[in-house]
Design a protein around this nucleic acid. Structure first.
Lengths: 223, 223
DNA sequence: GTCTATAGAACGATAGAC
DNA sequence: GTCTATCGTTCTATAGAC
């Protein structure tokens, strides 16, 4: 059974759902409560991405999820907890994507192309969740910020490791590894800010261009 | 007389004030009303950058400016108008910086280094205003969004023109000029998201690194 | 032009019936 | 687990005295 547990009402919802779901579907078949919790998360992701965390009301989330305002609090203790859950799951999926792409690549050049291209594409396809993950961070409470920061450091580390490997192998010529990693991540992250579907650029063309630019930026020059 | 009209209480306030002031000081000496309006804008920039537009209350802005809640409305019709004024002035200064840097450069290579390095440095030094300009855009009303978009298109055009000039002169080898311009702008804009003062990286080191990376990215390869 | 006071609406979250 | 009803707070913005 590969279908999703809720019925997405838009392609954007499908993308959010895809990024929120545990890997490989739902072995237990999904309880009613879990289904409702996911429906609330999709509704919250819609609203947070559209209006921002502070401008989103719990009433808005509830009505998008087809619930009364009180219905949300059975599944999430507060609006901030809901933001944390979206942020945590989004970071987990993005991290797993990067780790897998780096692991499966034949050499540092292909690894860099895969992770920067893939991360850029992720921020286009999942631009709603990407915006929340990258731009609503400050609205998390202090202890939730810490948990998310740990995941971010993992992500930064994957990029820095690939750069270091390429320098060691002689494929790359990079003076400031951490600074260059930061700049590369910035190009991918900023996609979530400017991308919107139905534009000229597609997630696929963004992946190709940004992966290629990353390789160009660090490749050792002839001569 | 080169001193500012208000007394900045922090280096961050001084940076905001610098970016807000009309060019070259204040010929009229500054009326009391204008001074208060600037003080409100600095207070609002502090608050918007720290908490975001929606999470900022007019009471917070007023108290930071040393006024009662009602005092703000003598100078600005609404919180949204205050955001627009900050956004408009921030975009104007950033645009002027880019236009001047591109004009004064000897060749496209130095022009690109100057505009991307300078734009990156601007987003570090003025990271408060940079955050507002780049990340609070959606909270502007529709007609104010349009006015700001016009300024953004000018900024995008400066970068694309420099890239096109470098391609024409043979200094650059760029397949997708608009896509590359977008990626370069992203690295600079994203500085406003991650930069905070007192870090290892300084605005000057960011300018050097990001200017150099920009040139590396587009330079024609030997062979 | 600044204040005190407050109107009028909306907010996050909870109580208690079913 | 979801509802209706609402508590207690906070918000933007305005009225009117000085």
């Amino acid at each position: 059974m590969l279908s999703t547990v809720t019925t997405p009402t838009s392609p954007a919802d499908a993308a959010v759902l895809d990024a929120l779901a545990p890997e490989g579907g739902r072995p237990d078949g999904g309880s009613d409560a879990a289904e409702t919790a996911v429906r609330i998360m999709v509704a919250a992701a819609d609203a947070f991405a559209e209006r921002g965390f502070s401008a989103t009301t719990t009433r808005d989330i509830a009505s998008r999820a087809g619930l009364s305002p009180a219905g949300v609090y059975v599944h999430f203790a507060s609006k901030e907890v809901l933001l944390f859950e979206l942020s945590r799951r989004g970071h987990l999926r993005a991290r797993d994507l990067l780790v897998a792409a780096a692991r499966d690549a034949a050499d540092p050049t292909e690894a860099l192309r895969a992770i920067i291209g893939g991360f850029s594409r992720w921020h286009a396809e999942h631009h709603q969740l990407g915006r929340i993950v990258q731009f609503e961070f400050r609205h998390l409470g202090p202890e939730h910020q810490e948990q998310v920061l740990d995941l971010r450091r993992e992500i930064d580390g994957v990029v820095a490791d690939v750069l270091a490997a390429g320098v060691a192998s002689g494929e790359f010529d990079v003076e400031d590894v951490r600074g260059t990693a930061l700049a590369l991540l910035s190009t991918a992250i900023d996609v979530a800010r400017w991308y919107s579907p139905g534009q000229r650029r597609t997630p696929e063309s963004i992946e190709r261009l940004y992966g290629e630019l990353a390789v160009r930026l660090v490749r050792r020059h002839a001569g």
